[in-house]
């Protein structure tokens, strides 16, 4: 572990406005403005998250458009992962709201008032979101095929045969059609992560969260996973939120890159803006340290910049 944050000074400017300025709307305000281009698939408003006395996210506002690929970069502990986990309903926000496809995620309407969402409400909205984890989290007691079909059968009530046909097609896309009867323990890390991606994709979410999906992999296995994600991204329909330490990958794939630090979005823009013309000092020093690392790593087969600190 290499220390990260200590070199960053707390002198930078506050949030930079999002690239496509949108009219901010309160969560209760009805959608009246027809001129508004497309409704964001995800909309964070004033999201704060604290664990005990430790504040991880500080009043975050963020919109993600349908089909948009957003990469989140930043030092360990800067809140990137928490941002995704709040959307996946794995953590509850301390304050603020999240809208998914125009609907409140953590709140629901009851007798004209917004009240905390119950499990039923979460279940309904959650169907639009998918997630791939750093540590794969495949189900060890099910073979690969069952890992992929299980949720289709249980959640989407799909007949088993249809679920299996879809699962096989998806496993073929990630190059694992020959491993369907294997169990997770019999696969390499890269293969496991490809299964995890297939498992999330078959549920056809509107937005997919990728939480440092290559951080737990051996360097030589990173490429195969990134290739799969790039292929999926190229199809374009699904919005993606990619938390990553692979800067080359972020640059290749993202429509927009966000740099988070200290629980705030410090800077955001197109990959060119972020990587070629970083404005804030914090981003500059963050990138400088990565370039330094890259020179060290130049010989490795993965050939991409990899973060020093892994969350």
């Amino acid at each position: 572990m290499i220390g990260q944050t200590e070199t960053l000074r707390e002198t930078e400017q506050p949030d930079v406005a999002p690239p496509a300025p949108e009219r901010r709307r309160g969560p209760e305000e009805p959608e009246t403005n027809v001129k508004e281009e497309i409704r964001p698939i995800v909309r964070y408003r004033g999201i704060t998250k604290s664990f005990g006395s430790h504040q991880v996210l500080d009043r975050i506002d963020l919109d993600i458009r349908p089909g948009e690929k957003v990469a989140l970069i930043g030092p360990s502990g800067s809140g990137k992962t928490t941002l995704a986990r709040l959307l996946m309903t794995l953590e509850e926000p301390t304050s603020g709201t999240i809208e998914v496809d125009g609907e409140q995620l953590w709140h629901m309407e009851r007798k004209g008032r917004l009240v905390p969402a119950d499990e039923k409400h979460l279940h309904r909205v959650r169907g639009k979101i998918g997630m791939v984890f750093q540590h794969f989290n495949l189900f060890p007691h099910m073979n690969i095929l069952r890992n992929v079909t299980e949720a289709m059968v249980l959640v989407q009530r799909m007949p088993k045969e249809e679920a299996e046909a879809r699962a096989l097609a998806m496993l073929e896309r990630v190059g694992l059609q020959e491993r369907t009867k294997h169990y997770p323990a019999q696969l390499s890390g890269g293969q496991k992560q490809r299964v995890a991606i297939a498992r999330a994709l078959v549920m056809q979410p509107n937005i997919m969260l990728f939480d440092e999906v290559t951080s737990a992999l051996d360097p030589e296995l990173v490429g195969e996973v990134l290739d799969v994600i790039k292929n999926v991204a190229a199809e374009g329909e699904m919005a993606m939120m990619l938390i990553t330490h692979e800067m080359d990958f972020a640059r290749d794939i993202a429509d927009r890159v966000l740099f988070t630090d200290g629980g705030r979005i410090v800077e955001q823009g197109t990959p060119e803006q972020i990587f070629e013309n970083p404005r804030s000092e914090r981003l500059q020093s963050f990138l400088t340290r990565f370039r330094g690392r890259r020179a060290d790593d130049a010989g490795t087969s993965a050939g991409s910049m990899t973060a020093a600190g892994r969350e």
Binding site: L90, N137, V155, A200
Partner: peptide, 29 residues
């Protein structure tokens, strides 16, 4: 492991399904 519950949530399994299909078979072992 907590990741198992999290993956089950991410796949939108209901609390009962999470316990019955994901947690219990592993705990049983």
């Amino acid at each position: 492991p907590k990741g198992q519950t999290e993956a089950a949530i991410a796949l939108n399994l209901t609390p009962r399904q999470r316990m019955r299909r994901i947690i219990l078979p592993q705990a049983w072992r």
